[in-house]
């Protein structure tokens, strides 16, 4: 029972970060239909900014984290304007946009590698992460659980709720959904597509940035994982179902769960292959993803 809870908490907290990544990716992908490999960069920006502000400049962590998240969101604007808009104006399609995104990610990672130290890790006052002791006599449980893990889970749950409410009840949310489901009609009705694209990138990158902050606080980030992050995000989207936002969250959680279980039973090396096996199984047996539906337009183009 103990191990069950331990694995569960670890899986949920990892899955929560993945869910943030996937949700951000899904928001961008559903609207702009670009494989946004640069998504990992938003994560890294937030992570490094948090580290730099807190460690080098000595800001209190909360402020450092907030500024970092805002920076990540701002970087989303930069990505859309400097990378994707420029390519789109020249008539770029899927492949060229993807390669351009990859190129920008490479450039960014190289830049980070050159100007910064390789690992960004936050100082933790008082040593290791504070934990609390969970004791339930009846079930014979005596565990130390990191507060950080619980914080992550709660924060992500709140964020997912907030995003869902945003999409359902605010004007901007509806505009984004309009462009996502029928771009031509939305533009004909008078919605400004460029503005919506920018909003979407800001939103997605902010979500990724929050994930980055949480991850930096826990274990640090290195620049080389940019591609891996984008892959994780996209993997979560596929597993959960392309085109479905709750699917992205579920997919991220599922990925986190698979990786945690694999790490526990087979060793840390098997985390990524486990993710792959999960992806493969989902493709084979539920090609539309766990929560995807046949009706979604996107799927007819891709499967």
């Amino acid at each position: 029972m103990e191990t069950f809870i331990q694995i569960g908490i670890n899986a949920l907290s990892l899955g929560a970060i993945y869910a943030l990544l996937s949700l951000g990716f899904a928001v961008i992908y559903n609207t702009v239909r670009i494989f946004h490999v640069l998504h990992g960069a938003a994560f890294l920006i937030a992570g490094y900014a948090t580290w730099w502000l807190a460690q080098e400049q000595g800001l209190p962590i909360f402020f450092a984290a907030s500024i970092a998240v805002i920076l990540a969101g701002a970087s989303g604007i930069f990505m859309e304007l400097a990378v994707y808009r420029r390519l789109r104006v020249r008539g770029a399609g899927f492949l060229v946009s993807f390669l351009g995104s990859l190129a920008a990610l490479f450039f960014f990672e190289g830049l980070l590698l050159t100007i910064a130290r390789t690992t960004a890790r936050l100082p933790r006052p008082g040593g290791p992460l504070p934990t609390f002791n969970l004791q339930i006599e009846a079930l014979d449980i005596d565990l130390f659980i990191k507060w950080h893990a619980v914080n992550t889970i709660v924060l992500v749950a709140i964020l997912v709720l907030a995003v869902t409410l945003f999409f359902r009840y605010t004007k901007w949310g509806r505009m984004i959904r309009a462009i996502a489901s029928n771009p031509d009609l939305a533009v004909a009705v008078g919605i400004n597509a460029s503005q919506v694209y920018l909003m979407v990138f800001v939103l997605g990158s902010t979500l990724a940035g929050i994930g980055g902050v949480m991850q930096t606080y826990e274990g640090g980030v290195i620049p080389n994982v940019g591609i891996r992050l984008a892959i994780t995000a996209a993997g979560g989207v596929i597993i959960g179902g392309i085109g479905s936002m709750p699917g992205a969250v579920v997919g991220g959680l599922a990925l986190g769960l698979a990786q945690t279980i694999a790490s526990y039973y087979f060793g840390g090396n098997w985390a990524i292959p486990a993710g792959f096996i999960l992806l493969l199984l989902v493709i084979l047996f539920r090609p539309y993803g766990l929560l995807g539906t046949r009706e979604h337009r996107e799927l007819r183009r891709l499967l």
Binding site: V83, R86, L87, R90, A92, V96, L99, G100, L102, A103, A104, L105, F106, F107, F108, E109, G110, L111, L113, T114
Partner: peptide
């Protein structure tokens, strides 16, 4: 190296 290739690939795509 990574930066150079990123920049090169980007200009190539453009």
């Amino acid at each position: 190296t990574t930066m150079t290739w990123g920049a090169l690939l980007f200009f190539l795509m453009l």
